[in-house]
Computed example of a mutant assay.
Amino acid sequence: MSAKNLFLPAAFVRAPLQNGVGRYVCQLQRITFKFCKSHGGSRGLRDFIEQNLVEFAKENPGVVVYMKPRRHRSPVIVGEYLNGDRVWMSVHNKTHDEITKWVEVMRTQQGDVSSSRLRKYQYTDHPSIQGPWTPFTFKIPELNTAQLPDPKFGANNRLPQSATEELRLMFEKQKLNVKEEELKVAE
């Protein structure tokens, strides 16, 4: 086991700003493209800027786009998120298609999740050695190969009759007995 996580800040896994409850809020706030106008390693980023940048900006009006030309420097994409995270990615010698995919990844993620030690809301001194419970934990193994619907596995076949159902049947029998007695008296 590594002690690397001791030096990372602790954080909980949660949806920022309850994202997905109500409306979607894009977590990416700013994206900066740093590139060289003449360096060969910036070729893919320059192609992305020429072909896709205007379309990206139109599709994502909530994201501020900056371009920063720098002489004789390696190309970099920097994304800044709502939670204050900054993700820095070197795109040296990457193709136009790879950069398009990485920009989409930066747009859809919520910041640098790997830079914090994840914590849980629950804690126990004696964790279960049996593993987590799933809905399939106590299912009958024969269900895996059965052709459904099968009356053998029907829910009503295994359950006893409820008290309400028994009372309803008793009432029906009582009504039939009363009608039979009335017919006998009428004859």
Rank of each mutant, 00 (worst) to 15 (best):
E59Q: 14
E59H: 07
N60A: 08
P61G: 04
P61I: 04
V63S: 00
V63M: 02
V64A: 09
V64H: 10
V65L: 06
Y66A: 02
Y66K: 08
M67Q: 10
K68S: 03
P69K: 07
R70L: 01
R71P: 00
H72D: 03
R73W: 03
V76I: 15
V76T: 10
I77G: 00
G79V: 00
G79F: 00
Y81A: 02
N83F: 05
G84P: 09
G84K: 13
G84L: 13
W88K: 10
M89H: 08
S90E: 02
K94H: 08
H96S: 00
D97H: 05
D97T: 07
K101A: 06
V105D: 05
V105Y: 09
T108R: 08
T108V: 00
Q109K: 05
Q109I: 03
Q109D: 01
Q109F: 00
D112I: 08
S114N: 01
S115R: 12
R117Y: 14
R117S: 13
L118H: 10
Y121R: 09
Y123D: 06
Y123Q: 12
T124R: 05
D125P: 03
H126C: 06
H126N: 13
I129K: 12
I129N: 05
Q130H: 09
G131R: 11
P132T: 11
W133K: 12
F136D: 02
F136E: 04
F138C: 09
K139N: 06
K139V: 08
P141V: 04
L143H: 05
N144D: 12
N144I: 05
A146R: 08
Q147D: 02
L148H: 15
D150A: 10
P151G: 08
G154T: 05
G154F: 07
A155E: 11
N156E: 13
R158I: 12
L159C: 06
P160T: 14
Q161N: 04
A163L: 15
L169C: 08
M170E: 07
